[in-house]
């Protein structure tokens, strides 16, 4: 899940009777599972919520390249290096694709990126954790992309057409990344030395809880979720998605022969789900507020890239203008 706690601007839900005719028409369309398209009328709150969510999602793709950039130069084989490079390239593509989807709503990419650099826009909390050993490249693919997929598979049915279609395409690539990530871990657990196996367990120990936090706060502490669910921007609650993720991940964990750092994790026959321990919500909110291990570095790196690149972008604009002028003159 690459978007967390997206503000909807609503304190309580409106009933159909309280809505204007336009709003009612819109809500009925959403209820009937008709996709909303860029040119359709939509409530202001819906538009703003979507801009926030899609921009968060796009920012997450771009910031998410940094923890991988930390290892792409140190990938241990040609095959792994090529795979990681291709994954990073896909993520840049997802970012671009999502920014385009966001722009269909009238938002401006540069403005939204500026908000990110000013600390006014968020990106997924997970990317504020460091990648400390090579197995993190496997664990990020398996757990982080895995958590993202659980969310995004559902988002393929989101009510806004351009976002929904972006998700269809992105999900295919993310599934590929997830399998590759898992394979990195599996190869090391099966054929690796003890040191490599220790790397794998260490990576899982560090990334397990942050991966669960990706789904956001509990439903009863997520006031914006309700409105998003009614608008069908969100289709399943944070807790539902988290449970789905855990249920599908634990058998894979056992197949690896690894453990997660949660003594309370056990199968609950009655519920038909895994029970799990309490998430450290203080840590989650700290990270969201900017106090995670890498928040400052991540934003500083992105800001520097865009600031240092200003003259490059200006050159491209100036050159295009000159070329146009020359073409006009020649015509």
């Amino acid at each position: 899940m690459y978007a967390q706690m997206v503000e909807t601007g609503t304190k309580r839900l409106k009933t159909l009777e309280e809505m204007s005719p336009e709003e009612r028409d819109f809500q009925e369309k959403v209820d009937a599972e008709t996709k909303i398209e860029a040119k359709n009328w939509m409530p202001d709150g819906y538009r703003k919520t979507l801009i926030r969510q899609i921009s968060q999602h796009a920012h997450s793709e771009i910031v998410g390249m940094l923890p991988e950039g930390n290892w792409v130069t140190r990938a241990p084989t040609l095959k792994r290096k090529l795979q990681l490079m291709a994954k990073i390239q896909d993520e840049a593509g997802h970012g671009l694709y999502l920014y385009s989807a966001m722009e269909t709503l009238g938002a401006d990419r540069d403005e939204e990126i500026q908000k990110l650099h000013d600390g006014k826009a968020k990106y997924s909390s997970i990317f504020n954790y460091p990648t400390l050993n090579w197995a993190d490249m496997g664990a990020v693919g398996w757990l982080v992309d895995g958590a993202a997929i659980v969310n995004q598979v559902v988002l393929q049915r989101t009510s806004y057409g351009p976002y929904s279609r972006a998700m269809v395409r992105i999900c295919k690539e993310e599934s590929f990344h997830q399998r590759q990530g898992y394979q990195i871990l599996l190869d090391m657990m099966r054929e690796g030395t003890q040191e490599q196996k220790d790397m794998v367990q260490d990576a899982i120990n560090r990334l397990w809880w942050p991966a669960l936090m990706m789904f956001g706060p509990h439903d009863d502490e997520s006031p914006n979720s309700q409105q998003s669910m009614v608008w069908k921007i969100k289709r399943k609650s944070n807790d539902e998605l988290r449970q789905m993720f855990i249920d599908q991940t634990i058998p894979q964990l056992e197949f690896l022969g690894c453990t997660v750092p949660d003594p309370d994790l056990k199968w609950n026959e009655e519920r038909g789900h895994y029970d799990f321990g309490d998430i450290n919500w203080k840590e989650f909110y700290d990270v969201l507020k900017g106090n995670g291990p890498c928040n400052r570095e991540r934003i500083a790196t992105r800001k520097k890239a865009i600031d240092d690149g200003a003259w490059v972008r200006e050159a491209a604009v100036a050159y295009a203008a000159k070329q146009k002028q020359r073409a006009d003159k020649a015509a």
Binding site: T73, K81, L82, Q89, R302, V312, R313
Partner: peptide, 25 residues
């Protein structure tokens, strides 16, 4: 590949990595 996340625009992230991938391939 050292430029990951450091290119002057998102389009360039894509292009730089594309060239890098070709070369390593």
């Amino acid at each position: 590949s050292e430029l990951t996340g450091k290119a002057p625009a998102v389009e360039e992230e894509l292009a730089v990595m594309n060239v890098a991938l070709d070369l390593v391939g």
